[in-house]
Design a protein around this nucleic acid. Structure first.
Lengths: 173, 173
DNA sequence: TATGGGACATTATACTATAACATTCGATGG
DNA sequence: CCATCGAATGTTATAGTATAATGTCCCATA
């Protein structure tokens, strides 16, 4: 279990089941490619490779984890390398930041506008993205009442994934 | 505008209107006191004072901002001073962390169990807490399907508060 | 061909958070 | 009374996250 941090383990309905992950990768990468050329943004090698790395697993990866990988693959070792790529990918909606973990995941639904919602296991730190409607009604009402214009929002739920619950939910260590 | 970061400015329906803030403070502090003695937890001076500091405004305060204040008031200058107080206050539900900002706000609804929802202005960084139901239906459905047990969740919405929108929404600088 | 802008390189530093271990002190039971 | 256990705090050190600031490269294009 201790090794489960930031590995392949995932929790949510789609991600948690065995699946042809190559399909995930191709689907998302193709869509990103398409959208990038459509929007005339510059999908450079470092940006593309950063997305590929994040796509290797459904787990969230910290910026310095990504940086390490980028460095190993010859893209440079300084923090801005990773953060610039991440900024681009997030602007394009190809990647989300999981604030609770200060870590990043490739978006599995890059074709739809949505409010990402994450199920984050406090035990193994697996992360599953699910989609909810662009802005949940209750929050939208509150925002309207306040004159607040929501531009993007995220829901983050912490708890225990099925696998960890089965093991008793004790901390990894 | 530039000075608006982490000041009294707030955005949401309750917090954004002029109001007797002394009432907020007394109400929350009394409730906290009551709950602490009821639960037999140790509401020590540093913990209480940390809550008082966070209650001074509806804005989110970074941990090191709180630490600075605690230090000035004679409670010590090392990071664990602030983080320990914050850990306690969050456990008790008296304080929430706004993950998007890595900053902390006193909970304005310490008497109810709820999913906090934050409206965060990307321009002036004001934060308003609103309540939504313990777990929005759509997310709950997803979680059930995944066998994921939600223990707590948060919604964070970023956008422009009314005041900043009126000013054109340009960055503070 | 100059020039303007986007992307990238490089250096330094700011900010956030926790690990690890020592000490104090009060409640509780012998 | 005294042992001792645990919660809270004190102290030092370090890990982890993120951005500022400046300069270079290169290419589209006027």
């Amino acid at each position: 279990m201790a090794a489960a941090r930031q590995t392949e383990r995932t929790a949510a309905s789609e991600a948690m089941r065995p699946h042809d992950h190559g399909d995930c990768v191709r689907r998302v990468l193709d869509e990103a490619e398409r959208r990038a050329s459509e929007d005339k943004v510059n999908f450079t090698p470092v940006r593309r490779h950063a997305l590929e790395i994040l796509l290797e697993s459904h787990a969230a990866m910290p910026a310095y984890g990504l940086l390490k990988r980028l460095d190993e693959d010859g893209f440079g070792s300084q923090p801005p390398v990773a953060y610039r790529a991440l900024d681009f990918l997030m602007e394009q909606g190809f990647v989300h930041k999981v604030e609770r973990l200060n870590a990043f995941v490739a978006c599995m639904y890059p074709h739809e506008t949505h409010t990402p919602a994450f199920l984050i296991c406090r035990n193994c730190r697996s992360v599953a993205e699910t989609c909810v409607s662009p802005s949940p009604a209750a929050l939208l009402r509150e925002a309207r009442a306040a004159g607040f214009a929501i531009e993007r929002s995220v829901m983050e739920a912490e708890g225990l994934c099925r696998a960890c619950a089965a093991e008793g939910g004790a901390p990894c260590s």
